[in-house]
Amino acid sequence: MNEQDTDGTVTKRFMIVNRKAPHGTVYALEVLEMVLISAMFDQDVHVAFLDDGVWQLRRGQMPGALEMKDFSKTYRALEGYGVEKIYVEGESLAERGLSEQDLVIPVEVIARADMARLMDGMDVVLTA
């Protein structure tokens, strides 16, 4: 599945999977930092949100109420970091009463079966 670049370096298909809600635990913030760092290594980075991970992208978050940083704004920086392959599982949204319009950034909403195939085709998958 590796793509050979013109200069001979191998680019890996790399996916970071978010399954945790934000704020209650530190996972979402740590994974976001990992995404930003992985963007620096010229890999083919994919970011997926499924299960409770879809809550990370909910609009209107105000964690200032808990004296915590509003890192939901940081997802909007991903485009500038060259991370543009962002997938959200439709079933996970629907189960939670959410729709694409509730999210802070434009994403590609895909069905669970397609998410399964997408994950299966990756070289490296990190899930939290």
Binding site: L36, K69, A77, G80
Partner: peptide, 15 residues
């Protein structure tokens, strides 16, 4: 202010 992070140099240069 907008993104709640300091950008990496490459991102800064582009922006």
């Amino acid at each position: 202010q907008e993104y709640q992070i300091a950008p990496a140099v490459r991102v800064l240069t582009k922006a």
